[in-house]
Design a protein around this nucleic acid. Structure first.
Lengths: 262, 262
DNA sequence: GCCGCGCATTGATCCTTCGCAATGCGCAGG
DNA sequence: CCTGCGCATTGCGAAGGATCAATGCGCGGC
């Protein structure tokens, strides 16, 4: 949030916090106070949202778009340690700064709460506090899922895992995951280099692994950034981790959408 | 905590909670209440502390020993997603269960707080709540550090990263990290298969990578589980991530101990 | 003291992936 | 329309790691 956003603080009223996941259960007065301190900020794809190790002056929620958390290595390379989508929360509270930078992977809009005010609110509202706690817990779960994906020795397996994770992670984001017939269609909001960094490999290997999966009929490559997963089951086995991403919920999604299509 | 510990609940009074990191700042009455509900439990190396996905009935703190968090894969393999040392906190609060199991890597003693009572206390004590929050944040940082290590394409680099992480992580544990002359001596509380799982590779590769580092003079292998790191700097470069583990604090440790040895 | 077992290491071979170079494709600017 | 640029893909030789098998080592049981 240290970077100068293209659009300065937007209208404070237009952001309906109640629509954010979990926020509908906050008591009315707390919502009002949040509403009063929130600042809306826009970023273009590629812009830096937070500099690594910079004093973090805001706690933020992603309103639209996709952000990537990344660590810049001394040799110039960078490693992605996670992505943030609609409704995700980021920023420090109470201590320290973030050890990674955050960049906009797509055009994005952020709701920012000045840190001091947010912390004060945290102390007064157990509900908000618990919301944050639960968020951190699930973030931790996700980080561990990611670790398991990364520990897969084969690029193919890691890629399969990543695709599954993205599917479940992007479910809630409009137009990125859709079900067509008996297949799941996914728009990958990351470039090939991004994916390669994420998986600890190179673009070429990603390309090869992806096409290998396509050749084996597990998925179709509609466009470089648009995949159609034809065999979720096989992909899960490929990843070697069944409950990795919440595949169950994905399968439910598929069934539900297939049923409604009947 | 569902497993039957060899020794049943120990004496409640003998556990001095104030000695735990962070706990000395809790207000007296809260400490008293924690003291009242805590149960001490012992586990032998290899025993299961918590079953994955089992209803988690306790929130726990490691008192002595090392635990490993691991995910059991359907094909029988298992992946380690983290280790817990003295003072670390684990267990769910408010929702869900853990998606990984916890095993004792060494003989271990833990302090267990019944979940319901602990949660009630959390709601009444902002200090305890914040302690948990901060703990989760640093746990998240660690998970991300680990991700970066795992994303390293070369086994050698991942191993270097793991060693550094272990050094800083085990600093606080007696007799595991010591400084002798200009070298750091570290006892690895994990077996080779454990390390291999952790790094997403096999025992053979771990062995080869370790001996390669030894051949290059970065470290000495005193015993299979006892390493003497001779060149922290080079090891850090090998890992490709400078502030990965808190190497700075390690260097400070080295300097401090060297100075005191003069 | 001998044996068997678990663990770490070493060796040899095969497969995967890396790393570099070249090609193909879409797109914006001249 | 052509050109240059960015990105994805493909090909190929070389390096690294996986895999299987065999050897050493420490330790508890007999």
């Amino acid at each position: 949030m240290q970077e100068t956003p293209r659009e300065a603080a937007g209208s404070k009223s237009s952001a309906n916090l109640r629509l954010l996941p979990g926020f509908d259960e906050l008591p009315e007065p707390i919502l009002k106070e949040l509403q009063a301190i929130v600042v809306r900020r826009s970023f273009e794809a590629g812009q830096t949202v937070v500099e690594a190790d910079a004093p973090s002056r805001f706690t933020c929620i992603v309103r639209t778009g996709i952000l990537r958390m990344q660590k810049d290595l001394p040799d110039g390379r960078q490693h992605i340690v996670g992505i943030l989508v609609e409704g995700d929360l980021f920023g420090r509270v109470f201590n320290g700064n973030m050890h990674f930078s955050i960049e906009a992977a797509t055009d994005a809009e952020i709701l920012a709460f000045p840190r001091a005010a947010f912390e004060a609110l945290l102390l007064r509202s157990p509900e908000l506090d618990r919301l944050l706690l639960l968020h951190l817990l699930s973030e931790l779960d996700r980080a561990r899922d990611w670790m398991i994906i990364l520990a897969n020795p084969k690029v193919r397996g890691r890629l399969a895992g990543l695709l599954l994770l993205l599917c479940t992670r992007l479910q809630t984001v409009d137009h990125l995951v859709t079900v067509s017939g008996r297949a799941v269609r996914v728009r990958i909001p990351l470039s090939r280099p991004d994916v390669a960094h994420l998986l600890g490999t190179r673009v070429e290997s990603v390309s090869r692994a992806l096409h290998a999966l396509a050749d084996d009929g597990l998925l179709d490559i509609v466009r470089p950034d648009l995949l159609e997963i034809r065999n979720l089951q096989a992909l899960t086995e490929e990843a070697g981790e069944p409950d990795l991403a919440d595949t169950a919920s994905l399968l439910r999604l598929v069934k539900a959408m297939r049923k409604s299509a009947d």
